[in-house]
Design a binder for these strands. Structure first.
Ligand SMILES: [Mn+2]
Ligand SMILES: [Mn+2]
Ligand SMILES: [Zn+2]
Ligand SMILES: [Zn+2]
Lengths: 138, 138
DNA sequence: TAATTCAATGCAAGGGAAGTGCATTATTCG
DNA sequence: CGAATAATGCACTTCCCTTGCATTGAATTA
């Protein structure tokens, strides 16, 4: 059980107050967040700092980006030991058409997708849209 | 074998010179196009007209929208008899990381995706990224 | 400690795509 | 033809993302 400070340092990210706060914010959220979400949570902080912080997290692979089709990029913490860039490791994402939230289905890996001859698959993005468990009243 | 005019009329789209040109442009392209692509192809025409034309085509389901993760919406003609809104009918899309082009793999349908209990799947977006047949030198 | 160095932060500005209101032009129909 | 309706063109706006540059802060070294 490592602290957030240790985790950041292990990934060559210098520890700052802002970064700790943003990390905690992401960790506490169960859903993927937009930059605006972070902005609203830290109104005293500058947009750019938040933007660059999330980009740093992304580069260092402690956060992954999600394109859920809404046109707005979302972010979520990576699973422990997740290798975002390895295809077989990728999980699918679910976007709720009702509450508009997007979540990682981390234990739903993307199935092998067949592509035609001559095509080389390097990466797959799979987003399922529908009604989430909270909204389906279950 | 129906003409473009007949096809437009069959879909309750009034035939205009602009619409014929844009339809032909889409038909001649083998890849999905952005609004900018259309803009560049018709420099004398106004952006808004092109935009609204493609939106009309989309509404009337002779064109479908593609979100390939580049952040820029792309469009492609629907297959004859395609029902974009029916989940089981949806094909997958391939985005080439080399030439940056996106194509419909119309005969590669999206497999059934399992979602957790309480979640209801209404729609699936599946984009495979990699190297296309032209770029893989095959 | 003081000076140096480099990264993080803050401020400002810009780009690009998408969308809308409204006037003008074209087409359809009585 | 004249009226009604739809298509087109122009201007403007919004939203998200990104970057340049100055400033602040922290760490390192003399
Ligand atoms: Mn995820
Ligand atoms: Mn397609
Ligand atoms: Zn929901
Ligand atoms: Zn290619």
């Amino acid at each position: 059980m490592q602290t957030i400070e240790e985790l950041l340092e292990a990934n060559n990210i210098r520890v700052t107050a802002m970064r700790l706060l943003i990390y905690k914010f992401l960790a506490q959220k169960k859903v993927a967040v937009t930059l605006s979400d972070i902005e609203n949570a830290f109104e005293k902080a500058d947009r750019t700092t938040l933007y660059r912080t999330i980009k740093t997290f992304e580069e260092k692979a402690i956060v992954h980006q999600i394109d859920d089709g809404t046109g707005i990029t979302k972010y979520a913490l990576c699973e422990k030991g997740c290798n975002c860039e390895i295809e077989t490791d990728l999980h699918l994402h679910f976007h709720c058409n009702n509450c508009n939230e997007t979540i990682c289905l981390t234990d739903h890996k993307i199935p092998q997708i067949k592509v035609p001859n001559g095509f080389i698959s390097e990466n797959v993005n799979l987003v399922v849209k529908g009604i989430c468990d909270k909204c389906s009243g279950e």
